[in-house]
Computed example of a mutant assay.
Amino acid sequence: MVGGSTLPRRALGRRLRELRTKAKKSQLAAGLAIEVSKQGIGRLEVGQVVRISTAQFRDLLDFYGADEDAKTEVLGLLQEVKAAKGDSSSGWWRAYADVVNPHFDHFMSLEQACRRMTTFQLTLLPGLLQTPAYRRWLVATADPAMSAVDVERRLELAARRQRRLVEDPDFSLEVLLSESVLRHQVGGREVMSEQSQHLVEIGRLPNVSIRVIPFDAGGHLGLVVQSFTLFDFPPLHASRMAEPPVVFVEGFTGALFLEDDSVIERHKAALASLRQVALSEDDTRVLVQDIAEEYAA
């Protein structure tokens, strides 16, 4: 999956791929039928931007032998793609593109479009829960050469992302944390004391669930799976079907966006296993509060 794609564009590409496969047509043949390269058809099918007119879409649907219902669905998705492109409120995060990783545009597209975000973190807090001081230390450590101005822009971006937790009641966040996340002294004891208190407070929001997997839970699947985030999406209007989930896995120099059904199911099973060994929300608050007081002592 490539940065910047939108949910309607992903759905459009997936539906066109299904119709092409059903028609037993190759990407090369499809491209020749509407005077687009084979690579262009490939990019279209994975949700990337390709300059194709509505007339060409109609010709492509005719080439695939699509029935009227399929044509209506695809053209409806096409209208959603155009509407998303013209929405001046979308893509606000792109103003910060010069101070974030190349994959972050796509990550933000998913984060802003999803209805539910579930994340397991083994070493660090997810961005939506980080205090400015915690985030500042991470930025300075990852890129010590970054200018003070750009550091502040990174903090501004984080703050804008976090607004959704309180401004969008339809968005929910579930966080499963290894206790090690709370024990690593990111930025020092004072920063961690403040960060821990912040977790206690933000965990009281009705759409936020924070649960810790304590050290005394012993070995658990998360130690093997490592950190990841699952995005779940609302249905699209044109197709009336839920957009398939996406799993995000970040590394030091890159990231993966996973969409294969079997891969998604394995990560969902991992989450189910982690929930079984995690503390309740109430017990988590008690633990986090105790840790905050330890840092403040």
Rank of each mutant, 00 (worst) to 15 (best):
L157E: 05
V151L: 15
A272V: 14
A158C: 09
D69T: 11
H184I: 12
D216G: 02
L256H: 10
A66N: 05
E243T: 14
F104V: 01
V277L: 08
F231S: 01
R9S: 08
G222S: 11
R285N: 08
A29F: 05
G188C: 06
D143R: 14
L77R: 05
A297M: 07
L7G: 00
N101S: 13
T6S: 14
L258R: 00
F233W: 12
A142E: 10
D282T: 15
R115I: 04
S280D: 11
A83K: 13
V175E: 03
L205P: 03
R275N: 09
S262R: 10
T21M: 12
M117N: 10
D150V: 10
L287Y: 08
S262C: 01
H103R: 02
L157P: 06
F171C: 03
V200W: 09
N101M: 13
L61C: 09
F257W: 04
M146G: 01
A292C: 12
T118I: 13
K25R: 15
A66M: 07
L223N: 02
S280Y: 08
D62R: 14
E167Y: 10
M1C: 01
I34E: 02
P8T: 06
Q48D: 15
L128E: 10
A217I: 10
L258C: 00
F171E: 05
W92A: 10
Y96I: 03
L19H: 03
L258S: 00
E18Y: 03
T118D: 09
H267F: 14
E80H: 07
E179L: 04
L271E: 07
L274P: 07
P245D: 09
G47R: 03
N207Y: 08
T284F: 07
V286P: 03
E250D: 12
L223I: 06
D168Q: 13
T6K: 04
H106D: 12
R183F: 02
E294P: 06
Q39V: 07
R204P: 00
P102K: 03
K82N: 11
F248K: 01
G254S: 15
L221N: 05
I41E: 05
R136K: 15
L199S: 01
G222M: 10
D59I: 02
L173A: 09
L124E: 08
A133I: 02
A83E: 14
A142Q: 10
K25E: 08
I34W: 01
S89R: 15
S88K: 15
R43T: 00
P206L: 08
Q195M: 11
R15T: 09
Q39S: 15
V224W: 08
S172D: 15
L78Q: 07
K24R: 14
P126W: 02
L129G: 05
F233Y: 11
R266F: 11
L287V: 08
P102I: 01
F171G: 03
E190K: 15
K85R: 14
G31M: 04
S37P: 01
T72I: 02
F120L: 06
F231I: 04
R17Q: 12
Q112R: 11
S209C: 12
M192W: 11
T141L: 09
K85I: 01
I52N: 05
A297S: 13
L221E: 14
Y64R: 02
K71W: 00
R161Y: 00
L32N: 10
F231L: 04
V151A: 08
Y134R: 10
H103I: 00
V181D: 05
S89Q: 13
